[in-house]
Design a protein around this nucleic acid. Structure first.
Lengths: 138, 138
DNA sequence: AATAAAGATGCGAATCCCTCGCAAGTAGTG
DNA sequence: CACTACTTGCGAGGGATTCGCATCTTTATT
């Protein structure tokens, strides 16, 4: 249960940077590498952006972290265990809303049944306009 | 019906570059700015990449073209009228498969009803693993 | 047709985001 | 405590996109 184990059990070395990157992703919910770096710098000012990128990649390789492309360009990282919702990305305000994964269940099933396509919910980003930005007058 | 009108009617000037960019997007189905530029160069070798970017943006502003983020990083552009399908992006081979938009109809409806979220099908990219890359042994 | 004003284009520089290479530092092992 | 492999920091490198600006075109007007 100690954090050390989850890293070492997966064959990773325990470095302060690595642990901080993972902790940051978990705290932030979803964040860009830049945001993760900023978070980590609160307790470890010297961390290098390259290190953040490399650790995110490493953590993703062992399944502790996942990334999604939410549109703008950069990737967004999530802790693997927090992926219990869909991401509703608003193209107007850029906000990322959540919706329960079950909302997509039948959709996912029909894609699998009809097209043999296995939808990866972790990479599932939905674009549109959120309720706040949707103006009936337009 | 003439192409001139669809551009001028939307307040845009008619330039050879603009028309060629639009034509290229229509011919290509979906393409990156780079690919559009390459296509345009077949008949207008001197076109500048900046011009392609600017025109894609302009055409998008007036609704003739749309873009999606298919994951890798760069945006992919589509002619607005050709958006009659969903994009199933395979994370393994990178292929972009199609599925009829109706497959998502009930999903879109429930997001609207339950969350007030208006899903923009044009920006709708679905990540997962295509039938060809899906190996039951994994 | 000639002309003026608004817009577009080309070009090069500048950014942004991310990746690399390398030397120095550090965790894990016996 | 020493050794080896993996990590980190740092700076350079690279690809994609954006910007600034001078020049040229399209359009609306004479």
């Amino acid at each position: 249960m100690a954090e050390q184990h989850e890293l070492r059990d997966r064959g990773l070395r325990l470095t302060p940077q690595r642990e901080l990157v993972l902790a940051a992703v978990r705290e932030l919910g979803h964040a860009t590498p830049e945001e993760v770096a900023e978070k980590v710098r609160q307790s470890h000012p010297g961390i290098n952006l390259s290190t953040v990128y490399r650790n995110l990649e490493t953590l993703e390789n062992v399944g502790l972290v996942l990334h999604t492309h939410l549109g703008h360009g950069g990737a967004t990282y999530h802790a693997a265990e927090e992926l219990t919702h869909l991401h509703l990305v608003c193209g107007v305000c850029g906000s990322v809303g959540d919706a329960p994964i079950e909302a997509a269940a039948s959709f996912v099933t029909s894609l699998a049944d009809d097209f043999g396509f296995r939808t990866d919910v972790s990479h599932f980003a939905i674009y549109g306009t959120c309720a706040d930005c949707f103006d009936p007058n337009l």
